[in-house]
Design a binder for these strands. Sequence first.
DNA 1: CATATAGAAGTAAACGTTTACTCTATTGTG
DNA 2: CACAATAGAGTAAACGTTTACTTCTATATG
Lengths: 335, 335
Amino acid sequence: MNPPTIKDVAKASGVSVATVSRVLHNLSGYSDKTKQKVLKAVEELGYQPNAIARGLINKRTQTIGVLVPDVSSSFSSEILHGVEETANDKGFSVIVCNTAKDGERTMKYLQVLGEKQVDGVIFTSGFLEEEYYKVLKQMRVPVVLVNTQSHKHSIPYVKVDDRQAAYHATEYLIRKGHRDIAMISGTSWDTMAGIPRLEGYRQALEDNGLEFMESRVAYGNFGLDKGREAMEKLLQDAPPFTALFAASDEMAIGAMGVALERGLKVPEDISIVGYDDLIFSRMVYPPLTTIHQPLTMMGRTASEMLIDLIEGAEQVSSSIVNHNLIERQTVRQMP
Amino acid sequence: MNPPTIKDVAKASGVSVATVSRVLHNLSGYSDKTKQKVLKAVEELGYQPNAIARGLINKRTQTIGVLVPDVSSSFSSEILHGVEETANDKGFSVIVCNTAKDGERTMKYLQVLGEKQVDGVIFTSGFLEEEYYKVLKQMRVPVVLVNTQSHKHSIPYVKVDDRQAAYHATEYLIRKGHRDIAMISGTSWDTMAGIPRLEGYRQALEDNGLEFMESRVAYGNFGLDKGREAMEKLLQDAPPFTALFAASDEMAIGAMGVALERGLKVPEDISIVGYDDLIFSRMVYPPLTTIHQPLTMMGRTASEMLIDLIEGAEQVSSSIVNHNLIERQTVRQMP
DNA sequence: CATATAGAAGTAAACGTTTACTCTATTGTG
DNA sequence: CACAATAGAGTAAACGTTTACTTCTATATG
């Protein structure tokens, strides 16, 4: 009554389990007649190999773990989508781990992934704490980072150059004739996505002879609500500005919402450029001009790199992927 | 230098593997002194149990599989989020499977999940084809459906009553004084989410003495772009209307976009209610009035049901979860 | 014809656990 | 003091595969 095992197949076809295994793996060492018998038995019994037993012996589970801060966010789920897609194409399954940006949860997940003997792990969008690194190292499996990087350890990563992308966004606004440009930055102590974007903005301003004013930047946490708050603060306290660069689309959209509520028109009264190009950024009205991060593609790339590593590659090189600016309808050409 | 096994621990602490296993499981049959020795060895070696070996013997992998049509969609990923959350709380890992609404892929995933010996599977948002049912049955593991249901087979599910929710949305528009209400429906042959919503709309109209007009309904596929097309068609061909009910938020937002582009104001010129309450529906401007489906909670519930079943519950009852209408700013009270 | 060789197949160990069963020494009971 | 009960611990089988090694037979080679 239990699911049939290889032994049942062997019995049913009158050969040894070794032979069954061989035909199932297309190895040599059996006659064509035997092969037919075995295949017939497999068919009749509805035999399916047990990947657990297989994993035990060849120390490979064909499974990878992916840690994301928030599966339900568009950002994480687009990356996950890419990862899953190519993993699947290459015969790997993926276990999702929603860390909720919580260190304890992350540690617990790492633990579980270790016990479950995953063949590799992808860590996305967050600082790779030393404590994570330690357990990852104990697991003796390849790791790749997405949308983050480790300065201390040499771990392959795939991300865009945040500083440069922010520079690009700001410069675009300048080229469009704006001279008073505010910014809603991400978390101020975020060394991955916060600081570099702010730096890029500042640099672009300075390179174009514009003054960087601390009073024109407000800080959020990349989320919508903080974006709204930041915009309110800017509108109230900052010197007047005609354009805004937000370090995430969510914040940009939040900011756009408050502008609209106050009767300011976008882009007539205020131009906005976001960062991320989330799926729904083209859905809002007016559609958001933003820095496109090819999240799905980044997920795919990371997956490929990881699997190469799993399959024996000595090393793979990190990938700085190209961002690009998607012009939609939230930026106006100044007269 | 391979990772340490239970044997290494046994050797290091001078006891048998059975004893080690016992202390690790808090069973009885050893002295306190032995326990200390074992724990010390575990600590020193950095021993981690191998869940694969464990799974082989107790035929339990503490892993479930979740099939979603599109991980990167807000809809799927919110459900996934809920599923993952409670699965994790209860000690289960989740393998994500992105079916891309493709039958072949789905079958392949089911196959893999079977081989990987998952303890249960959650199937979301799509018709449960007979062929899927067959392999699921062969797997001899519990299944729960989310956002769909099977009329042919008795499989527990969690979903909202689509017909009733659509009725509710339409009636709301009527109560707000609208008499000319158009609809953008989902796929016309979708028996799960397409037909029931259309039926609810029609019923609400009729119950309120309003005429149902085929010419006032256009069909999309739940996605943004088809929503836009449908809206364009409606604006051009349908008898004039003051309100619109869309069978998905994406379509509602697409429709809102074309309205805005054409200079129609929302809600002044046209009122819109959507369906789903995706995370970003409150982000768009104006924020969308819509039917809230508690997706994350539905995921959680499904996960709980599945795990109860895995842990021996004879049966669990399906859950029709409450929808509710979230009033935001896209509906106007008619004079 | 004797022998090497290749093909077809089987045997059994190994992977890392869990657990039923066994054994021994100690304690408790009358 | 004889015996049962119990605590502490070990032995080994089992889970379902894969694979190195062995065995047997038939054919090819000289």
